[in-house]
Design a binder for these strands. Structure first.
Length: 392
RNA sequence: CUGGCCAAGCUAA
């Protein structure tokens, strides 16, 4: 049984739920870990429905089963589902509660997160860290700091989370202060500190960290590229991307987002097209990532290539609200107000994404520049009437 | 042999 569990767990790691299931079906005696591993295999390969189906028929669920399933829901931002499971637990353990803190934090329900936290009779460092993170990602940096200061036995993740919290506020001084208190550091610590400098516009300092840190990984490289791009040094960003490629470090979707941002910043159409080709041919998985498509559209739009932008848009497999916004505003900025409006109507018909206030800003911009005053007026009404968005 | 926390990223102005 144990070796069978190891095998299923191995399949789970690589996301081969199908193979895991075949093996699972052939196993004679299964214990709770067997089931948990199998559910986890479905979770890892993104098949939540299958995971849930198995969860529902599992004979002897243990605490791990529940928190595994709750965690899967919170990560996919399906908080209702997570909550529903959580409430069925008579005696939720520390891990399930921590999952809920994370879930509430991600959903911006910070007081629910805090209530969960304060209601815990037993907490470990991970629960404290989750609470720090929940406050931090909702910009309650001071509250995050208070929790941080109250952690009995902080670990490196506690420090890393706090450094990142200050980094996103652009507060280098505080970030550095925490950084200097760390006894040991890992790649996350260094990268977070590097980002703190980048966010504060201290690109040279960021680069100094990047050059001296022990083992920069793809996130570290991307952070440095982003630091350049966001501080008006897009040429350097693109140069560093070349180095990253030469160093054999795998790009991620975030890398491409930053690189394409640098391309649009410089209206480097040639390079942008090259990147487009590379990601399409060499990173097929990333090519279908929503954010990568958005960045490609943005790049083409910025370079005035609306047809190519539109082609990317049409090829996208799932379009988020930012996808629609990017394309609509590309039309708007190019003075194609009518096209922008047409796309907006298509958005409503498509129904896959809801317009948000950015959509309306783009539409209003398009209308006003096209001199479509009447249309502007009616869109403005629709904004509050149909979508409950307040004009401001 | 299974479950929870930490670093980078896209759209309007």
């Amino acid at each position: 049984t144990v070796s069978g569990n190891v095998l299923i767990s191995a399949y789970a790691q690589v996301g081969h739920a199908q193979d895991a299931r075949t093996f699972f079906n052939e196993m004679l005696d299964r214990n709770a870990s067997t089931w948990n591993n199998m559910i986890n295999a479905y979770v890892q390969s993104g098949e939540l429905e299958h995971a849930r189906a198995l969860f529902d028929v599992m004979p002897q669920r243990d605490q791990g089963t529940w928190s595994l399933m709750i965690h899967a829901y919170t990560r996919r931002k399906l908080l209702e589902q997570a909550e529903q499971l959580f409430l069925q637990l008579e005696e939720p353990d520390v891990m399930s509660k921590t999952c809920m803190i994370v879930g509430y934090g991600l959903a911006g329900r910070i007081s629910d997160a805090y209530n969960m936290f304060t209601g815990m009779v037993e907490r470990d460092t991970v629960s404290y860290n989750a609470m720090v993170q929940a406050f931090a990602e909702n910009n309650h940096t001071d509250s995050a700091r208070q929790i941080f200061d109250s952690i009995p036995r902080p670990n490196l993740s506690s420090f890393n989370a706090m450094i990142a919290a200050y980094a996103q506020q652009g507060n280098v001084q505080q970030a550095k202060e925490i950084f200097d208190q760390t006894k040991s550091r890992n790649v996350v610590t260094w990268t977070a500190m590097m980002n703190a400098y980048g966010q504060a516009g201290q690109v040279e300092e960021a680069k100094r960290i990047f050059d001296t840190m022990p083992e920069p990984n793809t996130v570290s490289w991307t952070t440095m590229i982003t630091a350049y791009a966001q501080n008006g040094m897009s040429k350097e960003a693109l140069q560093l991307f070349r180095c990253m490629d030469l160093a054999g470090v795998e790009a991620t979707r975030v890398t491409y987002v930053s690189v394409l941002y640098a391309c649009s910043d410089l209206t480097e159409l040639q390079l942008g097209r090259l990147v487009h080709r590379d990601v399409k041919n060499l990173h097929r998985r990333l090519y279908f990532e929503n954010v990568v498509g958005n960045s490609l559209m943005q790049m083409y739009g910025r370079c005035g290539k609306l047809v190519e932008a539109r082609t990317v848009f049409d090829e996208m497999v799932d379009r988020s609200t930012p996808s629609w916004n990017t394309m609509i505003s590309a039309y708007s900025k190019a003075g194609h107000g009518t096209e922008a409006l047409r796309l907006f109507e298509l958005m409503a018909v498509d129904g896959g994404s809801r317009p948000d206030c950015i959509t309306f800003m783009s539409i209003l911009f398009a209308c006003s520049h096209a001199g479509l005053v009447e249309v502007t007026r009616s869109q403005f009404r629709s904004m509050s009437m149909d979508y409950q968005l307040e004009p401001w």
